[in-house]
Each structure stands twice: as structure tokens, then as C-alpha cells.
Computed example of a mutant assay.
Amino acid sequence: MIYRGACHCGAVRAAFETATKPRLRFDGCSFCASRGVKSASDADGRLTLESSAKLTRYRFGHKTADYLICPDCGTYVATHMNGPRGPVGVINVVGLMIPELRDEPADAASLDNETPDARIARRLSRWTPMTLTEAA
């Protein structure tokens, strides 16, 4: 199945391909909680993110990944990091307004006690291989 979505203004578009129904999750960090984020990823899937403008990147906490934000409408759309086999990411199905997923329930995930190394290992094992294309 390929899930497609875009940010509020349409400048950022995503295609999330997965063979299984995505398990949505949310965490209680202030960044995600303030945005109503529901995240989805599939290590065996494929994610394509395209933006007509250079995305804004935000790093916080352990500074191990880039939170990607549309520079036009301010929507948080995905998180991205480079791994040994290339870029991986997780999408915000609410920010990308993916109709089949945005209203589905999400499981709570507590990430508060993860070390930076454990966080990176978890991401590499669960996040989706991705292609990111953005205008200069």
C-alpha cells in the first residue's frame, strides 16, 4: 500500500510505501505533544519526501536527527537521519494529512530514558529507508 500526503500548504509531499498496516505511535515530548504528532515507519518499506523549498531542520535533545519542517506553512512533516545504509525516516501522518492514517489511534511510546546510542540503534532498526528531495 502507498499512503500519500502533503503539508498544509502542499509544498511538502510524501509517499509512504509499506506492505503492512502501519502501527502509529506518539510520545510525550513537548515538541510532538504540542503538534499532535502520530508517527509511522516501516524498516521494510520505502519513504519518498519531496519539497518545493529547502526544508527547515530542527535538532533538539541528543541532536541525533533532523526534524523536517515546511518553511512555508511551518508543519512538522518527518524526522530524518543518515544511517550506514543511507537515509532513514519517520513521518508525521497528522502533519502530512494522510487521510487513511491521521485519525487512527496511536500507541504511546516512552523514549525519555534512551541513551543516544540506544536511540540511534532503535531508529536504524525501525525507521523507513527514505529518499529526500528538496529545492535548493
Rank of each mutant, 00 (worst) to 15 (best):
T79G: 15
A53T: 15
L47W: 08
V88Q: 02
T128G: 04
T128R: 06
K21R: 10
T20S: 13
P129G: 02
P87T: 10
A6W: 03
C29W: 03
Y3K: 09
T128P: 09
L55W: 00
P99G: 07
S39T: 15
V93M: 13
P105N: 02
G5P: 00
P129T: 00
Y67W: 11
R25G: 14
D66K: 03
R57N: 04
H8T: 06
D112V: 12
P129S: 01
V12M: 09
G61Q: 04
D103Y: 02
I69K: 01
G86D: 09
G61M: 03
C70R: 00
P99Y: 05
D103N: 09
N82H: 06
S125C: 08
T128N: 09
W127Y: 05
K38R: 12
M97C: 15
T128I: 08
R126S: 08
A78V: 08
F31P: 14
K63F: 14
E50A: 11
R4H: 09
V93K: 07
K38M: 08
Y67I: 07
F31Y: 08
T79D: 15
C70W: 09
S41N: 13
R59A: 09
S39R: 12
I91R: 00
Y76I: 05
G74T: 02
L101A: 05
L24H: 01
S30Y: 01
C73K: 05
Y58N: 10
C70I: 04
D112Q: 11
D112W: 10
N82G: 10
A106M: 03
V88S: 07
M1E: 06
A53H: 15
G28T: 07
L49H: 01
R4A: 12
T18L: 10
D72T: 14
G45I: 06
H62M: 14
P129F: 00
A121Y: 02
L55S: 04
V94C: 05
T20N: 11
C73A: 06
H80I: 06
R23Q: 13
S125R: 08
